[in-house]
Amino acid sequence: MGFKLLSKLLVYLTASIMAIASPLAFSVDSSGEYPTVSEIPVGEVRLYQIADGVWSHIATQSFDGAVYPSNGLIVRDGDELLLIDTAWGAKNTAALLAEIEKQIGLPVTRAVSTHFHDDRVGGVDVLRAAGVATYASPSTRRLAEVEGNEIPTHSLEGLSSSGDAVRFGPVELFYPGAAHSTDNLIVYVPSASVLYGGCAIYELSRTSAGNVADADLAEWPTSIERIQQHYPEAQFVIPGHGLPGGLDLLKHTTNVVKAHTNRSVVE
């Protein structure tokens, strides 16, 4: 069995187990497998329904001669939608809004960016022009300005110390501490036991640490421990890039980060 097929099978099995364990909360999309990078042309966006009122959005972007996937989250909030992270750029984010209108038909009224990198804030200006209120932590807003990236308009308070959590509509926002970046936030959907790890969490097929220019490698494993301790009931975990899975993604990420750190020390 090929690795790609095995990865998709694991996603399907995880979703099936969740649907059985929580039949009222989960209505997993039966329309197909989780979209992969090879299936999404740059400039297009796919939506994948995880649970009743919960979707991931998947886009792709060219970077350094390669094409990478990027995940975000959409959560229903009454007759409105909360968006977590842009679709990595203005063109993708405009396509995301169009796809949401086509498939869901509810307005996106608020959006949260989970850290300051372009795959999370690139497209904020498109959201703002569409009347979406954009939010991020003060740290993310400051770092985005320093980096020359787009800056969300509103500040999220109460997320300055490791372990801080605040309720934001249908989700809980959690600051686990520094990891992929010093400002990275985690998003949890309690009604569906869905954990969105953003770039602080890796997919299972990833074996290298990737972009760690703004990471705190020493603190990252401790931050992941905080996530595990705060959300032990999480059933569906979405990484910032690639295929979702279960809580095993947290341990896998820790292993990859520690291996990278150990290699760096040896070198």
Rank of each mutant, 00 (worst) to 15 (best):
A133N: 10
V237E: 00
L185F: 05
E233M: 11
V257D: 02
D125T: 08
V124G: 05
L243V: 15
P23H: 15
A209F: 07
Y34L: 15
T134W: 01
E233K: 12
T114V: 01
G158N: 13
G32S: 09
A218D: 12
Q61N: 06
H117Y: 03
V189C: 03
S208G: 10
N211D: 13
I58V: 14
E267H: 11
Q235T: 12
P190K: 14
L9Y: 10
V75F: 02
G78E: 09
H115A: 00
D79W: 09
S181F: 02
A136C: 06
Q228R: 11
S205E: 14
R128N: 11
Q229E: 12
N92T: 05
V146C: 07
G245I: 02
P107I: 10
L247I: 11
L159S: 03
T134E: 01
I17G: 13
V187H: 02
L73F: 04
N71F: 00
A178Y: 07
V166S: 07
A144C: 12
Y48N: 15
L82D: 00
H154R: 11
L13D: 05
A200C: 04
A165D: 08
L173K: 03
F3I: 07
L247M: 14
T36L: 08
S191P: 06
I50H: 08
Y34P: 15
V265F: 08
A178L: 06
L97A: 00
A25L: 11
D248S: 13
I84S: 03
C199K: 00
L247P: 13
M1W: 02
L243E: 15
P107Q: 14
E80V: 09
E225S: 11
S162P: 15
A111F: 06
R110W: 12
L5W: 13
I50W: 05
G105Y: 07
N184F: 00
G43Y: 07
R167S: 11
S264T: 11
C199N: 02
K251Q: 14
V45E: 03
P170G: 08
A90G: 12
R263W: 12
L81A: 07
Y231M: 01
F63A: 11
H252S: 04
V194G: 01
T222K: 12
N149Y: 09
Y175M: 06
K4M: 12
Y34E: 15
V37C: 07
N211Q: 12
T60H: 15
A136Q: 03
T140I: 04
V28R: 08
H260R: 10
L195Y: 04
S160W: 10
V166P: 03
F63I: 14
N262I: 10
G131V: 05
L47A: 03
Y231D: 01
A111E: 13
D214T: 04
V54L: 06
I17M: 09
E44K: 11
T60I: 14
K8T: 11
G89P: 05
S160F: 09
K102M: 14
L173D: 03
S193H: 12
I40N: 13
G2F: 15
R226S: 07
S223P: 06
T153C: 05
H117M: 00
L81H: 02
I100S: 03
F168Q: 02
G123E: 04
R120D: 02
S7E: 09
Q235L: 12
N211H: 06
E39K: 13
P138L: 08
Y231L: 00
S181Q: 02
L82W: 06
P244D: 03
R141N: 08
V194A: 06
A136V: 04
G158V: 05
L156Y: 01
P41S: 12
T14Q: 07
L10S: 14
L81E: 02
E157I: 13
I100V: 11
A25I: 14
A144K: 04
Y34K: 15
S113K: 01
L159G: 02
S264A: 11
R141A: 08
A215V: 06
L243Y: 15
H241D: 04
I186W: 02
A133D: 14
N149I: 07
E147H: 15
G158L: 07
L96T: 00
P107F: 07
T114I: 01
S70R: 00
L217C: 01
R142N: 14
L249D: 01
S264R: 10
Q61D: 05
I84V: 10
L82E: 03
A59Q: 15
E225D: 14
T93H: 05
D248N: 09
M1S: 03
V37E: 15
P221S: 09
Y196H: 05
L47Q: 05
Y48P: 05
W220R: 03
G43A: 08
A144P: 05
I17S: 09
P41K: 12
Q235F: 08
Y68Q: 09
A130W: 10
Q229A: 13
V146M: 14
A213E: 14
W55H: 02
D216C: 04
L24T: 13
P23W: 14
H57T: 05
A98C: 07
D119R: 00
I17E: 08
G89M: 00
P244I: 12
P35S: 14
I40E: 14
G65H: 08
S31W: 10
S30H: 14
P107V: 13
R128Q: 12
T109I: 11
G246R: 11
E33C: 06
S155M: 12
I238M: 09
T182E: 10
V28A: 12
A87T: 03
T14N: 06
V212T: 09
P221V: 10
K4H: 06
Y12K: 15
S7F: 08
I201L: 12
P107N: 12
G43L: 06
A90Q: 12
L106A: 12
G169Y: 05
G169V: 05
G245S: 06
V166F: 09
A129P: 03
H154C: 06
N184Y: 03
S208W: 08
D77K: 04
V194T: 06
D183A: 01
E101F: 08
L10Y: 15
L143G: 05
G131W: 06
A144F: 03
G158F: 09
I151K: 08
P170V: 11
V132N: 01
R46A: 08
P138N: 08
A95V: 11
P23Y: 10
S16Y: 12
P232E: 08
F174N: 03
P190E: 13
I20E: 15
Q61V: 15
L185V: 10
P41F: 09
L204A: 14
A25P: 13
V42T: 12
A15M: 07
